[in-house]
Design a protein around this nucleic acid. Structure first.
Lengths: 358, 358
DNA sequence: GGCGGGAATGTAATCGTATACTTCTGGCGC
DNA sequence: GCGCCAGAAGTATACGATTACATTCCCGCC
């Protein structure tokens, strides 16, 4: 038995209080809130007045417990730090808010174990659906999701062969397109500065896409031309510095993110490397700042806002038992700006291919 | 009466199931979860095994309803779009996660009514505490918070005269310091590009701080020298363009954010305005990119990460009934880099003050 | 040997709401 | 005038956990 005594004056206002005040039953008040059309107009008016007068705020926990609906959707993203996911989150939150849903946000720092834990925590909190990033997760995560039968969706990826619903784009193709573009311009010494590929299928796919696109053209990608670093501006700078200490520096560099590309441009200015004359640079994301860099950054534009909206739509449709596409492929665009052009001295490239001694 | 029939096989696993499986009462299982030291080691082991075997996940709604603790803290911020608040959110989420709390995130787009609604929604969801941005909110918001007796804290501001707890810095002083610095360098034609000041006491305070600092030095700030625009790079560019169409363009410009300053630098490069020779530029925030701009941006460094951590600490301490400072003032630094120097032609400034005709 | 007391566990009330089922009312058709 | 039905409101249970209080058991001490 629980005989706690609470000061009645400071007690939370409940449905019961509203019902008493409006002189009706709790069921009627509940109906007035959740399906007003079932309640007579005058009674409804009385109830509304009582709610205002008492300052009643429904108790979400009780509501969630009884109805099994929390009106909360969870998102598990790698990090907010790099602002890469800011646009996704922003549009997700907006779209959910339109339908009265709130967003519970969680990060895992590219650690699959933490991702699993955080997802479990979200389920504990009673989220009705979950938005994830990427297609490769801990095995336990899939079991968990299957067990709870909550709708979920992977974003930032598109893979119709996957067992899991996804909304995004094909990272391989997107990166491959950028690689082919550089090759078409005439570049043959192409370097890659990628974000961490460990536990990150998006970055890994982009790298793979570049590699295979170049191989199709008969070019291979030596390990000296691939540098992997977290998405920080200073890492882009450092990577460029390393590349320009090579006996044969690249004539073009593909970056795994605009942030890394920013660092590259910054360091080029520092070292006196002229872009795009001496070096072509391509970014990835098309963040706000990309078009305002000097020269303006050629980059791959991704549908961050659409992904957020579509992910919310997908979850909401599933929750309302409406049909929803499990696989949504969104457009990616190669946005050509000022940091790319054909390599300065196409003729000098021959030297490498045909040594004098041959 | 509620006679819903659910397939028992697919029913959610509850405490009851665990108790049955471990052959003990629900009370014991609950204790094993919440205060393990009260449960005998062997029983605890049995329970742990049962939890694993059944894949039990606690129901947060039930827990919250009974214990009045949701383990959720809410944050109401203006927007995530400009990435200005990303660092705050990141560190807030991290710190909360350390104590097993989750973050419910909400935005209001500088609309006080939406801010109020969103806060009410958070309270409905049962958040235990609330983190806000700024010190000026709708009156109804304060009533709401008072009524619910939930700990809350204003961030990004420091005002010991306020009735509300806050963690941040003095925006007036911070901006005034930057203004004095420019004056000390010898600048007399100083312009301001501010973010929206409507419903935004931080920006308004910064502008006021600049104005009064200049007035102290006998300089006034004509309205032609103040441009107000949302925090977008293109707006910084546009503002600079406008300023340089004036008959007497400024020799220095103070920006309400690094984002605006970014735009200014970008446009200067476009127009051939040399920074810092022709124009000194000061930003605000010290975002990641500031030090990597060319020239590196002189700016006001704010304690975004600390604010997140301290806000979380404050709420957590309040929830645990531990003493907590209601007013925390964090350090702000003027970070001098490459975009500021004395005005090019100090001598020419005299012309203005002493016309030939006098 | 009886009894006090503490540790471990069990029993059952309770949190605030949604909702299945019941009851009541009045209108309508025959 | 009677029965039927629809619409509106009421009654009371269940959601799944926490926790106050009751119970049991075992030990040690007088």
């Amino acid at each position: 038995m629980d005989h706690r005594v609470t000061d009645p004056a400071s007690r939370r206002v409940t449905l019961r209080d509203v019902a008493d005040h409006a002189n009706c039953s709790t069921a009627t008040v509940s109906r007035a809130l959740n399906s007003p059309e079932q309640v007579a107009v005058e009674v409804r008016a009385r109830i509304d007045a009582s709610i205002k007068a008492l300052g009643y705020v429904p108790n979400g926990a009780a509501r969630a417990l009884r109805s099994q609906r929390s009106q909360i959707v969870g998102a598990v993203i790698p990090t907010i730090k790099y602002s890469i996911y800011a646009r996704l989150i922003e549009s997700l939150e907006r779209r959910l808010a339109m339908d009265g849903y709130s967003l519970l946000l969680t990060t895992h720092d590219y650690d699959p174990v933490k991702e699993l834990e955080q997802t479990q925590l979200l389920l504990t909190r009673g989220v009705e659906g979950i938005v994830l990033v990427g297609d490769s997760h801990d095995g336990g995560l899939h079991q968990l999701l299957a067990k709870h039968r909550r709708p979920y969706v992977n974003t930032y990826v598109f893979n119709p062969a996957s067992k899991h619903p996804c909304i995004g784009f094909d990272n391989r193709l997107a990166a491959a397109r950028a690689a082919r573009y550089l090759h078409d311009l005439g570049h043959r010494r192409i370097a890659v500065i990628t974000g961490p590929t460990k536990n990150n299928d998006r970055q890994a796919d982009r790298l793979a896409g570049i590699r295979s696109a170049l191989e199709e053209r008969g070019l291979d990608l030596p390990s000296s031309m691939v540098i992997e670093r977290p998405h920080l501006i200073e890492n882009g700078r450092e990577a460029l510095e390393i590349l320009f200490q090579l006996p044969e520096p690249p004539t073009a560099v593909l970056c795994g993110s605009d942030v890394l590309a920013f660092g590259v441009l910054s360091e080029c200015q520092e070292l006196g490397v002229s872009v795009p004359n001496q070096l072509s640079v391509v970014g990835f994301d098309d963040q706000d700042f990309a078009k305002h860099l000097r020269p303006a950054l050629t980059t791959v534009g991704i549908p961050a806002v659409e992904m957020g909206i579509e992910a919310a739509n997908y979850i909401l449709r599933k929750l309302n038992r409406q049909p929803a596409n499990n696989f949504t492929n969104l457009d990616v665009q190669l946005i050509v700006r000022g940091t790319t052009m054909p390599p300065a001295a196409l003729s000098t490239q021959g030297k490498r291919a045909v040594p004098v001694s041959a």
